[in-house]
């Protein structure tokens, strides 16, 4: 398989931006933690992979069309669309009601994993890039200040609840993710239907999340209850799972994290289309979709190798889905004795 040239360029740009961010964010590497170098490599690989794949994906004809139309729609009524954005982000991306309506259990599990991952990413990536670090405040051994790059922000007491939360953020994230992973696994194992449509990637993603979370928690176990025994070995194992996990990101199921925001574009696209004229079925004469979307499809279809043009003029794609089914039945019945 040959690499896509534009994808590679975009990937390299992504890597460069990440490195620049690290360099600048860590105040010219002053705050860069060399112990996290492995993580940085993993992250850079992930950035390259994700950006590369995204760049290839976004140029597929239907994706490119939707991307263009989504932005067109967004710009068309910018004020309204910007105003709608926060609630769209909340419902479509954060609270994920569309999963809840499908299945409450599945939604609960997904929320656990989702927020666990968000939390972990918010801690890990800035730490890795050196964007975030902690300093003790003066000589007080149990008081710390959070630094974002060079800028000191809030201070907290290590023994306080807040402090506990800060230092155990990754443990909390791991527990959330593990709980979600267990619910997912239980569903999959109990439901023959889910098992049947299982793709190997589905289990791999769960296994990866499991490994990262468990090895991370072991670090805490080691330092808290085992006086730090096995810590360095565990640390290496954890680092390995995280790095492998990061490297898996562009390839597997988790890539949906980067695709999903496209849903917002779809929402804007559909809203704009609803305000435009409808497509009218060439057979029954009823409106069945937006004229814009049907026109867009007629443009995309030849690009992906289809010719639904009719010899007498017009396009098969101007038939509504119901009439397609009906017409097929009539045509078939005509070829088995003609009743109907």
């Amino acid at each position: 398989m040959s690499l896509d040239r534009r994808g590679v360029i975009w990937g390299l740009v992504g890597v460069a931006v990440t490195l620049a961010l690290t360099f600048l964010g860590s105040d010219r590497l002053v705050w860069f933690d060399a112990a996290l170098l492995g993580y940085l490599f993993g992250l850079i690989f992930a950035v390259f992979g994700v950006v590369y794949r995204y760049a290839v994906w976004i140029r597929r004809p239907p994706t490119a069309m939707l991307n263009r139309r989504g932005w067109d729609a967004f710009r068309q009524r910018k004020a309204r669309n910007v105003a709608a954005l926060p609630s769209l982000v909340a419902t479509q991306l954060l609270t994920q009601g569309f999963i809840r309506r499908r299945s409450r259990t599945r939604w609960f599990a997904h929320q656990l994993v989702f927020w666990g991952c968000i939390l972990a990413a918010l801690v890990t990536f800035p730490l890795t890039l050196g964007l975030l670090h902690f300093e003790s405040v003066g000589q007080q051994a149990d008081r710390y200040q959070v630094f974002i790059s060079r800028v000191g922000t809030l201070r907290f007491d290590a023994a306080s609840t807040f402090g506990w939360l800060i230092f155990h953020a990754l443990d909390i994230a791991a527990v959330l993710v593990l709980a979600g992973v267990f619910i997912f696994l239980r569903r999959r194992l109990r439901d023959p239907g889910a098992m049947a449509v299982e793709r190997s990637g589905d289990f791999l993603a769960l296994a990866g999340l499991f490994a990262v979370s468990v090895t991370g928690l072991f670090l805490t176990v080691s330092s808290k209850w085992l006086e730090g025994r096995f810590y360095s070995a565990l640390n290496t194992i954890h680092a390995l799972t995280v790095i492998l996990g990061l490297m898996y990101l562009p390839f597997g199921k988790l890539f949906h994290i980067f695709q999903r925001p496209g849903n917002l574009g779809v929402v804007y696209y559909k809203r704009a289309n609803d305000e435009g004229p409808p497509a009218v079925c060439r057979r029954c004469g009823l409106a069945f979709a937006s004229a814009q979307q049907v026109a867009d499809l007629k443009e995309v279809l030849p690009q992906v190798g289809f010719d639904y043009g009719m010899d007498g003029g017009g396009n098969y794609q101007d038939t509504c889905p119901r009439c397609r089914r009906v017409q097929l039945t009539l045509a078939q019945s005509a070829r088995v004795g003609g009743f109907g």
Binding site: L66, R260, N263, G265, V266, Y269, A289, V300
Partner: peptide
Amino acid sequence: LKPRCIGCSNCVLACPFGV
């Protein structure tokens, strides 16, 4: 695929059989 589908309905409209 549940994680990927963004609900655009392109498939609904393009499928020649209306499936």
